[in-house]
Amino acid sequence: MAQRETDADAAGAAGDGADVERYHEARRFLYEEAEKIDDREFDAWLEMMTEDIRYRIPARQTRSEGGKGEFRGDAHHVDDNRFMLETRVERLETEHAWAEQPRSRTRHFVSNVRVVEASDAEMEVKSNLLLHINRGDDPESHRISGERQDVLRKVDGAWKLDDRTVYLDHATLPLGKISVFI
């Protein structure tokens, strides 16, 4: 899909051309990555990760200080390394991953993309996530929201996801289980 790479105003980015370019690269990466999940092209999705990928969804506790101060513990809903992500994908490709039989229909809405720090080799990117999940003939859907903090790294000329932390807006997970990629 064509990107309007010179339209800094539309992109909402400030600064010189390199900043704008990185913003577009980050945004393109995140959109493409979301598409791979929602289209269930998980092998292609895995190819967008580095070998050292760490994929975390920390548990949140309601605390008076609020904000990131609510992520004080070391408990996680998900804390995957490459082996674990690959195993999850392999599992989904069997016919016996019952939590995903029938498949959930996911829609990742990724927005508010901010490039926090960037070099030619590495980018730190924040974005907002709204994930809509529907399954079977259930008229009710689940919504999960949170902030992603990602580190993208250039590997052989292509950006790859090297580290992701999803800071959920939920203290109690409104799902019985996480069977989809958030």
């Binding site: 548990a59 408990a75 109690t172 997970l173 799902l175 019985g176």
Partner: peptide
């Protein structure tokens, strides 16, 4: 470590 909390329909 924990707890994590989640709600299930069971």
């Amino acid at each position: 470590t924990g707890p994590t909390r989640s709600i299930a329909n069971l």
